[in-house]
Design a protein around this nucleic acid. Structure first.
Lengths: 137, 137
DNA sequence: GCAAATGTTGGATGCCCATCAAACTGACTT
DNA sequence: AAGTCAGTTTGATGGGCATCCAACATTTGC
């Protein structure tokens, strides 16, 4: 298990964080991470409506802005929000943005394929896999 | 006195607000408005380091995102933050961003002309003018 | 070793945007 | 009416960015 390079908490800049979260796709990724806690790239980017390389680009943007933390475990990379770091640097910021995003959900493009889908967020299938992955890297 | 067109509170979108505030110049404008309450374009754009037409473009962006409100009084236009509207739409969002921006001040470009300047925000001179302007339009 | 799975990287493309300069509009002043 | 002030609009320009596709790197499994 190894961590990818991230900016130090003190180096996180407000405008970079805001710019990172101002993109609907990236905001959706952050919302998913806030719900699931930790996701690998495939699950986090599922049904986002963008190519996987585009999603990878967004992960990089979010990581370099200091919003999320990425650790590699075997062939998978798990991402999680830097909640504590962001809270200490910009108190209340992430929470208010997440709360706002949850009251104003952005429809992922792929959701249009099934207009009658009851719920828009379907992250549970990854839960078991995550738990397993953490047990024995 | 007449108001310029603004989006309704319910139409304010989170990503638009974040995108509007993700620019250092626009964030500085918002910070100034949060301190002064109300400013005309000339004062709000003073020492920002950008051309006045660029500043005007930023005012438009902020207004169309629903961040600020503009009313014309005679030959001047006064801008103010839509604090209540934003608070009701995205509770805590603006306050946390303003608090973060105040702890991490962005240096306006023109400040470099006077490196020994004691304070970076000099908005009081407009205070009297504002009060006068409101008395008798 | 070979193949599959998981992401990343490297063009390529097209769009959006921040910026400036100049011209313009609207309102007040003389 | 002419001039001035405050701000906007209209190109023009340059840079950044979101996106895709294809190729690559790395790890795991047979």
């Amino acid at each position: 298990m190894r961590l990818l390079p991230h900016p130090a908490t003190a180096d996180i800049e407000l405008t970079e964080v805001l710019r990172a979260l101002a993109d609907p796709v990236r905001l959706e990724i952050v919302v998913r991470l806030s719900v699931a806690g930790e996701l690998n790239c495939t699950v986090a980017g599922d049904d986002l409506g963008v190519h996987k390389s585009t999603a990878s680009h967004h992960y990089r943007t979010l990581r370099e802005a200091g919003v999320l933390l990425t650790k590699q475990m075997g062939r998978l990379k798990y991402m999680s929000l830097r909640r504590d770091d962001l809270e200490s640097r910009f108190p209340g910021l992430l929470d208010s943005i997440l709360a706002a995003a949850l009251t104003q959900p952005s429809a992922p493009a792929a959701t249009q394929d099934q207009p009658d889908a009851p719920a828009r967020l379907d992250l549970d299938p990854a839960g078991a896999a995550r738990a397993d992955a953490h047990a024995q890297p």
